[in-house]
């Protein structure tokens, strides 16, 4: 299951549980419900609850952390490097390094199921570099920050025409910034 769907379901189910608990607690305080008793020994209950919550968080933390982008595909030599430089309001993609003041835009093709490294920077303000697949799902992203190069590694599992959108607000043309490349 893709991450987005998973988190949406996770969110909606937790929100429903919270809403139900809230409603239950609220109902228990109505004059009409007589059989409820208020919480006994709250300090101990609180301790147990805190412990459970801490435990859940610790588990999620240790499971998710290794999946962070700084740790994935790190022990491989990428098959291809793509250089990306963002400007208000377009992206330059090239197979060779791009120098400021020397615009360079090339048609990019990258291999499927092989590691690709994007070296992303910006020549003016902060931009985002987000890759969308053919179903318009966000696959991965990094920021394009002036003065720095971020290396984003990815392995594309499906061939196709991938789109790039800007995901950091960069001015009135922000929503127009896009580019694309082909995965073969």
């Amino acid at each position: 299951m893709k991450v987005q769907l998973f988190v949406l379901i996770l969110f909606f189910s937790s929100a429903s549980v919270i809403a139900l608990i809230a409603y239950y607690v609220f109902r228990s305080s109505q004059p009409t419900t007589t059989n409820k008793e208020s919480v006994k020994d709250p300090i101990k209950k609180r301790g147990i609850f805190l412990f459970i919550w801490f435990f859940i968080l610790a588990v999620i933390f240790s499971v998710t952390l290794p999946k962070s982008p700084y740790y994935i595909f790190t022990d491989e030599t990428p098959n291809q490097v793509v250089y990306v430089a963002a400007r208000q309001f377009f992206f330059m993609l090239a197979n060779e390094p791009i120098e400021p003041n020397v615009p360079k835009m090339e048609k990019i093709e990258v291999p499927v199921n092989k590691t690709v490294e994007f070296r992303v920077t910006s020549f003016d303000v902060n931009h985002g570099f987000a890759i969308y697949n053919e179903r318009s799902e966000l696959v991965t992203q990094t920021q394009a920050m002036p003065g720095y190069v971020n290396k984003l590694r990815w392995k594309f599992k499906e061939p196709g025409n991938y789109k790039i959108f800007c995901l950091e607000y960069c001015g009135a043309g922000h929503q127009l910034m896009q580019s694309s490349f082909v995965v073969k």
């Binding site: 700084y70 595909f73 790190t74 022990d75 491989e76 030599t77 920077t121 003065g147 720095y148 190069v149 971020n150 290396k151 590694r153």
Partner: peptide, 12 residues
Amino acid sequence: NNEFIVSYPLPR
């Protein structure tokens, strides 16, 4: 040694 360095600064 195949260690991944996630970013580097540009001249400025």
